[in-house]
Amino acid sequence: MSPSDYLYLGRPTGPIYLRVRAKGLWAGMLLALAALMLAGLALGAGALELSHAQVWQALLGEGPARLGAVVREWRLPRVVMALVVGGALGMSGAIFQSLIRNPLGSPDVIGFNTGAYTGALVTIILLQGSYFEIATGALVGGLAAALLVYLLAYRRGIQGFRLIIVGIAISAMLAAFNTWLMISASLESAMTAALWGAGSLNGITWDKALPSALFSLVAMMLTLLLGRRMALLEMGDDSASALGVPAERTRLQLMSLGVVLTAAATAAAGPISFIALAAPQIAQRLSRSHGTALLCAFWVGALLLLLADYCAQHLFAPRQLPVGIVTVSIGGLYLVWLLFRQSRLASS
């Protein structure tokens, strides 16, 4: 590696001058391209097969009105949400793995997902709520759990391992409560809850998608702004403070953003597991750089969820699986493969 591995954007004397690792930038662009191509494919596939030209026409609002409705009103929101939700999960995973310096880190650590499931279960089983009520219930549950974990773990600052333990304890209690709800409920409610709990993009529309997409995009922008501080925080609180990064405050900001990203994703699609865990790891292996890690994590997450959703829709067609089940299986197999590959590298 040499200085020529960097790309410079802007003028050295101008108001804007940036330096990025070329490899990271290329990786990010390739990932984005792959995701967009897959998105095009997903827009064309389904019970009604469309050619690329037809998809393009439909997107531009030309061609038959019926096709336009199928593409713009049914398939497009689903594809867009797969990108946004996947990207949000990838980014929040990157945040949590960086914060607790642990590749197993994910928003689950602070009990968010279990709390969201509790909220959704309560809304489904006790209140028989509608889609939006379930989403609200999940948000409230998740945020309350995350807040509780943070407060209980706070003792003269937040420490990674104390956070993990308190998170495990609160998650265990909530999970026990969830189990109780599940066995007390009628079979029908329990099935509805389990479907929600698996995480799914089935039946998503623009109405359902927009609020969470907006929240995600704002949180993503803010996260990118904090990206450099996050990278400095990885070197330890001492080094980060010495470089002028207020450690405790930055950590709280980043954690809040991670929670907002997960919350927005969960509200739209339910708890989709494994993207938050796997996307940052894959991104880091692809880009091998730190400045672009967040963007790469976004694109890897988006690509993964889109791919998983494509499989969930078409693998057992006409039956649709919840996408969360596909991500969990793919993610688990990927992890096993990673372990094998690493042991091969280590022995060679």
């Binding site: 197993l104 099935m191 389990a194 597991s273 089940i325 596909v326 993610g331 688990g332 197999l333 096993v336």
Partner: peptide, 20 residues
């Protein structure tokens, strides 16, 4: 990690069966 990964795959398969 192997435990986490294999558990995840198994849970995924199990959920696919039960949800259908």
């Amino acid at each position: 990690l192997a435990g986490v990964a294999i558990s995840a795959v198994m849970m995924g398969f199990a959920s696919s069966i039960t949800l259908l």
